[in-house]
C-alpha cells in the first residue's frame, strides 16, 4: 500500500460491525491512525470532542432512528469543531442530504460518497485525503442526479456544456490533470475552462474559488 502524504487521525462511525472493521482495516493499512471506531452518532460526538481528529468518516443511517443520525452529528461537529473534515457515507442518493451538507457553515473539507464506492479502495483513500485537505468530494452518481434536475434559470445556465462537464468533474473531486485525462483534452484547456467558469459564476470572494464554484454547482 502506498503511504499517504500525511497520516491522518480519523474517527470512524458506522453501525454495521462488518463495515466498520473493513473501514478501519483499509484506513490503517494506508497508514492512517484510527483514534476511535464507534457505532452511533452520540459516541461520534463524544470522541470528536475528546480526540480532535483530522477527519470524521461517518455513515448517515445509524441507530437509534436509522434515518440521518450521521448527518445530524456532522452538523454539530461542523458547528463546534469547524476545522474537522467530514466524509459522509450513504447507502443511497438522497439530495436532501446534499442540501443540508452544503448549507452547513464553512470549515474543513466535506465529502459525500455512496457506500458502494468504499470497495474502490484506492479511489476511496484518495477521496479521504482530498476531503482532509479541505476539498469537496461528492459522489459522481449524486452529481449526475443533481445535474439532471438543474433548473434552466440557475446561475449555471450561463456556462457552456463543456464548462458544466468540467465543473461536474471538479465536484467529484478530480484534479485538473485527472479532468484533462477524462475529457481527452490538455491540462491547459482545462485551466482555460475553469478560468471561464470562475469568471461566469457569482463566487464568494472570501473562500477558495474552486470550492465555491463546486458549491454553486451543487446548489444549482
Amino acid at each position: 500500500m502506498p503511504d499517504p502524504v500525511t497520516p491522518l487521525r480519523i474517527v470512524v462511525a458506522e453501525d454495521a460491525a462488518l463495515l466498520r472493521e473493513g473501514l478501519v482495516r483499509i484506513l490503517e493499512r494506508a497508514g492512517h491512525e484510527i483514534v476511535a471506531a464507534v457505532a452511533d452518532g452520540q459516541a461520534l460526538l463524544t470522541y470528536v470532542a475528546s480526540t480532535a481528529p483530522d477527519i470524521v468518516i461517518t455513515d448517515i443511517r445509524m441507530p437509534p432512528t436509522h434515518t440521518d443520525e450521521g448527518l445530524r452529528a456532522a452538523a454539530i461537529i461542523r458547528a463546534e469543531h469547524p476545522g474537522v473534515a467530514i466524509m459522509l457515507l450513504s447507502a443511497y442518493v438522497a439530495d436532501a442530504y446534499v442540501g443540508d451538507l452544503l448549507d452547513s457553515a464553512p470549515g474543513g473539507g466535506i465529502g459525500y460518497l455512496l457506500k458502494d464506492r468504499v470497495g474502490h479502495v484506492r479511489d476511496f483513500l484518495d477521496s479521504v485525503d482530498r476531503v482532509a485537505a479541505g476539498g469537496t468530494v461528492v459522489d459522481g452518481e449524486v452529481v449526475r442526479q443533481l445535474v439532471r434536475r438543474r433548473h434552466a434559470d440557475g446561475p449555471l445556465a450561463t456556462l457552456t456544456d463543456r464548462e458544466r462537464e468540467v465543473l461536474a468533474l471538479m465536484a467529484e473531486g478530480h484534479t485538473n490533470n485527472a479532468i484533462a485525462g477524462k475529457l481527452f483534452v490538455s491540462e491547459a484547456a482545462v485551466r482555460k475552462h475553469i478560468g471561464n467558469i470562475f469568471a461566469k459564476l457569482p463566487l464568494d470572494p472570501a473562500s477558495d474559488r474552486r470550492v465555491s464554484a463546486v458549491l454553486t454547482y451543487l446548489r444549482g
Binding site: G22, R29, V118, G119
Partner: peptide
C-alpha cells in the same frame, strides 16, 4: 436486506479492493 446482505456485499467489495492493492 439492507442490514444483512447489502452490508456483507459492501464488506466483500472492500476486501477484494484491498486484495487488488496487495
Amino acid at each position: 436486506l439492507h442490514d444483512g446482505v447489502q452490508q456483507r456485499l459492501v464488506a466483500l467489495t472492500m476486501t477484494l479492493g484491498s486484495a487488488e492493492l496487495d
